[in-house]
Design a binder for these strands. Sequence first.
DNA 1: CTGAAAGCGCTTACAG
DNA 2: CTGAAAGCGCTTACAG
Lengths: 367, 367
Amino acid sequence: MSFGNRFHIRRSWQYTLLGAARRREALMAAISDVARLAGVSKATASRALSGRGYVADDTRERVVAAAATIGYIASPDAAGLVTGRTKNVGVVIPFVNRWFFGEVLEGIERALLAAGYDLTLYNLAHSGPERNRVFEFFLARKRVDAVIAVGVDLSEHEVSALELREKPLVCLGGSGGAAARLAVDDRAVGQLATEHLLHLGHTRIAHLAGTGAGEAPATVPGRRQLGFFEAMAAAGLTPSPADVVETEMSMPGGYRAALQLLGHPGPRPTALFAASDEVAFGAMRAAERLGIAVPRELSIVGVDGHEYAEMFDLTTVEQYPGEQGRAVVDVVLRLLGDGAEADPLPDSGAPMPTRLVVRASSTAAPR
Amino acid sequence: MSFGNRFHIRRSWQYTLLGAARRREALMAAISDVARLAGVSKATASRALSGRGYVADDTRERVVAAAATIGYIASPDAAGLVTGRTKNVGVVIPFVNRWFFGEVLEGIERALLAAGYDLTLYNLAHSGPERNRVFEFFLARKRVDAVIAVGVDLSEHEVSALELREKPLVCLGGSGGAAARLAVDDRAVGQLATEHLLHLGHTRIAHLAGTGAGEAPATVPGRRQLGFFEAMAAAGLTPSPADVVETEMSMPGGYRAALQLLGHPGPRPTALFAASDEVAFGAMRAAERLGIAVPRELSIVGVDGHEYAEMFDLTTVEQYPGEQGRAVVDVVLRLLGDGAEADPLPDSGAPMPTRLVVRASSTAAPR
DNA sequence: CTGAAAGCGCTTACAG
DNA sequence: CTGAAAGCGCTTACAG
């Protein structure tokens, strides 16, 4: 029962490629090695190790022991070839370095790992040819069992590229596609933030919206802005166009936009609804630079529940991206028939939870 | 030459699993479909598509056309089984949501994607059993061709788990392992930041160090702290232990640590070297809260070249994480024999570039 | 320049 | 409960 035989049968090119590894006894063992050592067939070894199918208890033990001895770990790719499952999920995400997206990604990664799945990351930071290649080549291959799209606005074409390959798609936020989608109610979020400021007596409230909010009402920035307008309208107020400024949803973006908004001579808004906490932090910094006291002269509300919000005393509508990541993985696993069957199905219609957290950045309107 | 035959041969369970996909003509095509359509053997189809081996020009054209017609994309996992190459790299990273790490990750992703590689993400945020599982199971499988470790302090055991599987390992920053490592000279960085403050006439300089700097001089926080001490010593100064505080390398971490450091009654340091820009931002916020004017009463220097540094007018020793990510992929590709052979070998001994950028947060010592 | 054959490492249905 | 056989989709060495 020596291991030598196998190698002499191998073709020379294979031998060259894997020779070094093979020659060390315990390395890169295949299931046939386990089977041989345990004195059973590959089929039995497979059943014993996977837990699928009947195997006598003592046989199983022998197989498991043999696997441990030679450090055997099954190749998921070889298994995937026959089962059609790679145990790998593609995650498409536009940013990694914005708080919300980073938290979601960490939540997804943790949940996937716990389920024995790999996470293949596709960063869509720069659209263009790269983005096409992701949808038409990388995600189209059989390498991923499913796709999670985080905060991406999918085109028809992108969705159908995935459908063509019958690749399950679950979205978190973003827009486009008829696929399964988990999301907070961003319209309600915008409404709530604005109502909080209205409730404090503010009447001139500005909005630092995310890029594209105006043209694309279905996107996250668009929905938050919609909520803002609705709350204002319900209070009988019509924001002046100059008080609604679009910006990249980052801290420097918020800083620059707020500098413009607040630096203009003449009466200023007394309150500001920022489309995200990062935008709000930028606005706070801009106010500081312009000598505008927050919250005495300017109340600010953000969205996210950013890790820094407490430090900056920022009032915000919290959401829970880590939980959202976990939840989206739950849905994927269930779609793949791999979740705990016992788990109740998530209420797919219901929006993900949010919560208004009031801190010192918002206060009663002056006078 | 109908596609129907194939399916009747399939076993029923396969049929059930893949049936729906197969029945739509153009879907999930295999190379045998391409071969049949082009009227050649699988071997020739493979050669034509991969570009390896001789194929007559017109044959190639026919094969390529056939592949396009049925939307054929090769399964990398099946190919990997025979070539031993998965075109997939595992990336191990402790954070995704800290600026430096996010930038590195984006740089790695872009470079890998451009080379046709996938990136499988393993987030080591929480060490413990999960971390073990990553090294002993996930990375040990044949699923990844190589491993990139970003800013991780590898144990002997972790390194040998990888070596056992002959998995090429390239590190960016961090410590541990004799593997290939790209890194900035963190000792020099600490020295430079400190010398800048000394040069401005400061003599009482505090240091907000990263967690573990004291016990682990080989780690990034340890090396930066070493540089700090060396520069101080060279100036004939010995920092008081109270002026060296360890903190998590985040903005809230810096905030809390600086609150302690600066809130203490009695004379204060006039300058502060923060182990990262995020720590520095936190310290700025703490100073603001305590009514300490930056830079008039307190000069602050950070490390990183964070996206926000300009907004906060922070003097910092910049590094270029996006470039670092790209560079580490270069090394991996070369190790895998997949890089442009023409490229000059990177000067593996040389540290990655850094640069002192002076802004308004640091100024001459009071008096 | 091309095809038939072997084989990568695994899992499953089938027959005992 | 177990094994022999077939096959997942691909690529390569070999022989023409």
